[in-house]
């Protein structure tokens, strides 16, 4: 069990790295075309403090944006799941908002909240990641089979009671499914701001400076750290899911 859960993914990552290294080596690509995994290590050693400082900035701002997305996305989802009118009114707005390329929002936000870099970054991470949560929660709530409601309603249970005892826990698997998508989206949001709007913070900034100084291995090194942080946060969500919605998981095999 542990073999399969831990060793198999690690083995797959090792295979991937070896393949990458071989690809670069066989083609004899220069590192400005594609850096190989063996080029990355020196970059990490050379800039280790930068990676920690910038990595932390990216991580906490992403998590903050994600938490905001969870709170407001869930609230919107509940509203749309409970009220048909709210659903009809809000869906086109939300879809429209979601369709706007977030890169275009970055300069607007920068003007709106001049100098408040952390706020800008968190808000963008939120904006890009709340949509899946809102939609999943609303669908989870609105597709609740009427019989579930009826067994408690027939006893005179209040709407709030039905929501708390049945609707909310029943929607948790959908919520966590959406949260897994939102985690990676939030990272994209944070880095959009960090790369497009240069204000000297986060891994996006490190990437940007690497680009300016033509340090190609460093650029790749940043990307790998971002990927690792995405994986880390994803598994945090998986762990939370197991605690709060473990019942939805069917027995393995």
């Amino acid at each position: 069990m542990i073999m399969r859960k831990v060793l198999v993914p690690i083995f797959a990552i090792v295979v991937f790295l070896v393949f990458w290294e071989l690809l670069v080596w066989v083609n004899q690509w220069p590192n400005y075309k594609m850096a190989s995994p063996s080029d990355l290590w020196p970059a990490y050693v050379k800039y280790d403090t930068l990676f920690f400082t910038y990595g932390w900035q990216t991580l906490w701002r992403t998590v903050a944006g994600l938490l905001l997305a969870v709170v407001l996305g869930t609230a919107l989802g509940v509203l749309m799941g409970v009220s048909r009118t709210a659903r009809d009114a809000l869906y086109p707005l939300l879809v429209g908002f979601n369709a706007i390329p977030k890169a275009t929002v970055v300069p607007i936000m920068a003007l709106m909240f001049v100098g408040q870099h952390d706020l800008n970054t968190i808000l963008l991470a939120f904006m890009i990641s709340f949509f899946p949560i809102a939609v999943s929660v609303s669908i989870g709530l609105s597709t609740l089979e009427p019989e579930y409601r009826d067994i408690l309603r027939a006893l005179g249970a209040s709407k709030l009671m039905i929501f708390r005892k049945i609707a909310l826990p029943k929607t948790l698997p959908e919520f966590f499914g959406a949260l897994k998508v939102s985690v990676t989206l939030a990272f994209i949001g944070t880095n959009l701001v960090e790369i497009i709007e240069p204000h000297g913070r986060g891994l996006g900034h490190l990437f940007d400076s690497a680009k300016i100084s033509s340090d190609y291995p460093l650029m790749f090194a940043v990307l790998i750290v971002l990927a690792l942080m995405g994986i880390l946060l994803y598994y945090v969500v998986v762990a939370l899911e197991r605690i709060f919605a473990g019942w939805a998981e069917r027995g393995a095999d």
């Binding site: 579930y148 027939a154 826990p169 919605a245 019942w247």
Partner: peptide, 19 residues
């Protein structure tokens, strides 16, 4: 006039709470 506590219901779908 409305729901009352003195009724029990069972449906074709057993609607048990999975958690």
């Amino acid at each position: 006039k409305g729901p009352r506590a003195s009724v029990g219901m069972a449906f074709q779908n057993p609607v048990l709470l999975e958690w």
